[in-house]
């Protein structure tokens, strides 16, 4: 916005003919010009929608409705009191709580194990990263088949080894954990790659120093060098993992359709806004969703602070 406005103010064009604008003016002109498409799109696709969203969240607007009433905070009050929405929030948080520690721990373990491999590293990197690139919605369909109560191979294995078969995709208490397992399967390779990058950034002479200092055992090496040196990476992984987990949608859409008490935040928003067209209410839910994301992002700002001491 400001850049575009500044462009108008730039007096260069009004100068008498033959005048060559100063270096600084030309630079400002070029800069404003270069930034203009981005500024326009930023306004049109992020800022204006955001403002509209917040305004909308205080109204009872429904798509196609003729008159709109100002509700004040009613939408928010309704959301907080709505058992379905509350379940969506608690389901989402449970999902995050399952995926976050598992995603960090498994990603770290995989990275530590793969880091020392030489010949087989490429294979493991590929294997663990494959789920990250695969279209999640298609893989969700595959999981649906794998976990099928009657013809799925997972239950066939359980039966073969004498364990009770499980209704992974219809037993309510198993639904969120099942979704979380698929979420983990999807995110571990991503985290592993981040941790691998972090590991290769640790100076080798620190390990030498630890060895000379008597901290050469594997536990000591990990506690004295690896873990503290990975702290910035770990924080970054934690933030991205929680945000990814918080946005869980695809697997829910395929596997449960939000039924059987598996509402999650985004799916609830999708239903309210784009199936029932209760725009005002969905906008309020979206604002709440955004607030959650902002909380996670605050940790990232903290991370930037900590970086300073590491150089």
């Amino acid at each position: 916005m400001t850049a575009a406005a500044a462009l108008d103010k730039t007096p260069a064009l009004e100068r008498p003919a033959g005048f060559r604008p100063s270096r600084a003016v030309r630079e400002a002109l070029a800069g404003s010009l270069f930034a203009t498409p981005a500024v326009v799109l930023l306004l049109a696709t992020i800022l204006a929608p955001l403002i509209a969203l917040v305004v909308l969240s205080f109204t009872d607007y429904e798509l196609g409705a003729v008159d709109v009433r100002w509700l004040g905070g009613d939408n928010y009050r309704q959301a907080l009191g709505d058992p379905v929405f509350r379940r969506a929030v608690s389901n989402t948080l449970l999902y995050v709580a399952l995926v976050l520690p598992g995603g960090i721990l498994l990603g770290l373990l995989a990275a530590l194990a793969v880091h020392g491999r030489k010949k087989s590293r490429g294979f493991y990197e590929t294997a663990y990263f494959l789920p990250v690139t695969a279209t999640l919605i298609a893989m969700a369909a595959v999981w649906q088949f794998l976990l099928h109560p009657r013809i799925g191979p997972v239950n066939a294995v359980l039966k073969a080894v004498g364990l009770p078969e499980q209704a992974f995709l219809s037993e309510p208490s198993l639904l969120i954990p099942t979704l979380a397992f698929i979420g983990l399967w999807n995110v571990v390779g991503f985290n592993m790659v981040l941790f691998l990058a972090g590991l290769s950034g640790i100076p080798k002479d620190l390990y030498d120093a630890a060895e000379v200092d008597g901290a050469g055992g594997s536990v000591d090496r990990f506690l004295t060098v690896t873990w503290p040196m990975l702290a910035p990476t770990t924080l970054f992984v934690a933030v991205t993992t929680s945000i990814t987990a918080f946005k869980v949608f695809d697997t829910v859409a395929v596997l449960t359709g939000g039924k059987n008490g598996t509402e999650v935040l985004l799916y609830a928003i999708y239903l309210e806004g784009f199936q029932y067209f209760k725009m005002g209410y969905a906008a309020a839910l979206t604002v709440i969703f955004l607030l959650f994301l902002l909380v996670f992002s605050v940790f990232q700002a903290v991370k930037l602070d900590r970086r300073v001491h590491y150089t």
């Binding site: 916005m1 400001t2 850049a3 406005a5 500044a6 103010k9 600084a24 630079e27 400002a28 002109l29 070029a30 800069g31 404003s32 270069f34 930034a35 981005a38 500024v39 930023l42 696709t45 992020i46 800022l47 204006a48 929608p49 955001l50 509209a52 969203l53 909308l56 798509l63 945000i243 946005k247 949608f249 985004l266 928003i269 806004g273 784009f274 725009m279 969905a282 906008a283 979206t286 969703f289 955004l290 994301l293 902002l294 996670f296 992002s297």
Partner: peptide, 30 residues
């Protein structure tokens, strides 16, 4: 390049990093 509003623009870009498509989806749809 130095141009007026550079700091503000960069601030908005960084803030935009934590706004996924699901947030502006509703108004964009409308």
């Amino acid at each position: 390049l130095r141009f007026p509003g550079r700091g503000v623009l960069f601030g908005l870009i960084v803030a935009g990093l934590c706004v996924p498509i699901q947030v502006p989806a509703l108004p964009l749809y409308m």
